[in-house]
């Protein structure tokens, strides 16, 4: 059944970060993508014993560095200075990406332009000619981590849903997304199709009316 949170939502990205942080498994090795997913680190608790991976060669990444802690040699994937936690480890880039590709990372959380109902992800390039393509580690993460979560607003600025039948933007990975966290709902993407897990500030019926790819779903059946 869908959990409808009619009294809270749509969520801010910070509130959503807290929701996602709460659902990261205890003891997981996790990579948080550049941008909004970085916020999730602020809501992980010590009891979760989550170890953060950063693609530029570190496990055991701590919080953002402040003041005198800033060290130009210690940055995260977004090139922001960070701190190291006890038990941290450094390694070179080929090892860092072997951790992804080799299936050693438990979870990664990425932002997205579009996600399809079959878990295709588009998050690296708008496809517009005037935009410079820049993929970074997104494609390696998308196909490498055991679970790929997406964190995004459900609706684009023009009001169209970013959860789509088929992505129109260039793909990052095929069938790689397993869960989509948005400001108004959380979706599971499985081999048997899309399921709504939870809504925020909107009922299931209204959500279904606003999102084309949900039109066939009935709340009681999933």
């Amino acid at each position: 059944m869908v959990v409808e949170n009619l009294d809270r939502g749509p969520l801010t990205m910070d509130e959503l970060a807290r929701v996602i942080a709460g659902e990261i498994p205890v003891g997981a090795y996790v990579n948080l993508g550049i941008g909004q997913p970085t916020k999730i680190a602020d809501y992980l608790t010590p009891e979760q014993e989550v170890v953060l991976h950063t693609e530029n060669g570190m496990l055991g990444m701590g919080r953002r560095a402040e003041g005198d802690e800033v060290d130009a040699d210690l940055i995260n994937a977004g090139k922001v200075p960070v701190t190291e936690l006890p038990g941290a480890a450094y390694f070179h880039h080929a090892d860092s990406f072997a951790m992804m590709r080799g299936g050693h990372l438990d979870v990664c959380v990425l932002g997205a332009f579009q996600v399809s109902v079959t878990g295709d992800l588009a998050n690296w390039h708008t496809g517009r000619r005037e935009d410079i393509p820049a993929v970074g580690g997104a494609m390696d993460l998308a196909i490498g981590a055991k679970e790929v979560f997406v964190m995004m607003n459900l609706f684009a600025k023009d009001g169209t849903a970013k959860l789509v039948e088929a992505c129109t933007m260039p793909l990052t990975g095929v069938g790689c997304v397993s869960r989509v966290y948005t400001d108004v709902a959380v979706f599971d993407v499985g081999s048997d199709g899309l399921r709504v897990r939870e809504t925020f500030g909107i009922g299931f019926d209204e959500l279904r009316d606003r999102v084309d790819v949900l039109s066939g779903l009935r709340p009681g059946l999933h």
Binding site: E55, H92, H93, A94, S96, F97, A98, M100, R101, I132, P133, A134, V135, G136, G137, A138, M139, D140, G144
Partner: peptide, 11 residues
């Protein structure tokens, strides 16, 4: 410009 996924670049 040749854009290469970061892991493929390293590997």
């Amino acid at each position: 410009l040749e854009v290469i996924p970061q892991g493929n670049l390293a590997e």
